[in-house]
């Protein structure tokens, strides 16, 4: 049996008295696209950030390629091949597109920077057109592309995406998910956190549904899309 790329084992997480995660267990296999669906405040972002130990779980284990990273430094995890496009995009507003991308090389150094920069511009031609523009002047969709590209600059094996569709127009969301589909087809392992269950589950091999810090359901993307509970809670279906 092969080791999952990422695995959560009974993870609890607290912010002071507030418990954000309860006994969370999940796994992401190499090459898979897995999504985590949940309403606002369910604990999705906390789960992603706990991979970098910010904050650290109060109980349980997080494993990356079989290695227990629960107590490892954020840098160790990032340079080991985990990258994140954070919630709300969080591009560096006063830096140009190109500078933002260069910042993405911090975990691994600049040895491949030039080559990777060109790969990113091939993947996101829109970013190349705007390479000297300040990031704050980009549209929401372009900023999301930049956040993803910045994460890819550290040559990750596992790409974490926190609500990439947040606040974007439907047509732009489609573009973003097409890009994710292409990335997945290229072999990237993607762990996607979304409120937009429809898009996310269609893209994903498997999915988890999180409610109040607990995993409520899991299954393949299609199973979850057909699940009545998911349909009523996240898809506005009847």
């Amino acid at each position: 049996m092969s080791v999952p790329l990422l695995e959560f084992r009974n993870v609890d997480l607290h912010y002071g008295p507030i418990q954000a995660l309860r006994q969370v267990s999940l796994h992401v296999e190499e090459g898979e696209t897995v999504s985590l669906i949940g309403a606002n405040g369910a604990g999705k972002s906390s789960l992603l950030m706990s991979i970098f130990g910010q904050p650290r779980p109060s109980a349980g284990q997080i494993l990356y390629r079989g290695e227990d990273i629960t107590r490892k430094s954020a840098h160790h995890v990032a340079s080991g091949g985990v990258a994140q496009s954070p919630e709300g995009r969080r591009v560096f507003p006063d830096m140009s597109v190109e500078e933002n991308l260069l910042m993405g090389t911090i975990p691994i150094g600049t040895a491949h920077a030039d080559e990777d920069l060109r790969r990113m511009f091939a993947l996101f031609p829109r970013l190349e057109e705007r390479r000297n523009q300040r990031a704050m002047t980009l549209s929401g969709g372009e900023q999301q592309m930049l956040a993803i590209a910045r994460a890819l600059m550290s040559r990750p094996r596992l790409l974490l995406l926190d609500e990439p569709s947040l606040g974007l127009a439907p047509i732009v969301v489609k573009q973003i998910f097409q890009i994710l589909r292409d990335l997945a087809a290229g072999g990237m392992t993607i762990f996607l956190v979304e409120q937009n269950a429809n898009h996310a589950l269609k893209l994903s091999d498997r999915g988890y549904v999180m409610v109040n810090g607990q995993i409520r359901l899991s299954g393949t993307g299609e199973e979850l899309l057909g699940n009545p509970e998911v349909r009523s809670a996240y898809l506005g279906g009847h």
């Binding site: 950030m49 970098f52 910010q54 954020a74 840098h75 995890v77 990032a78 340079s79 985990v82 990258a83 994140q84 496009s85 954070p86 969080r90 591009v91 560096f92 507003p93 006063d94 830096m95 260069l102 910042m103 993405g104 090389t105 911090i106 975990p107 910045r150 994460a151 550290s154 926190d162």
Partner: peptide, 18 residues
């Protein structure tokens, strides 16, 4: 680079594993 990233956005920094 990390210093400058911190200046621009601390949360982004942490999400980058800094």
């Amino acid at each position: 680079r990390a210093w400058e990233a911190l200046r621009e956005d601390e949360i982004a920094c942490r999400a980058m594993g800094l």
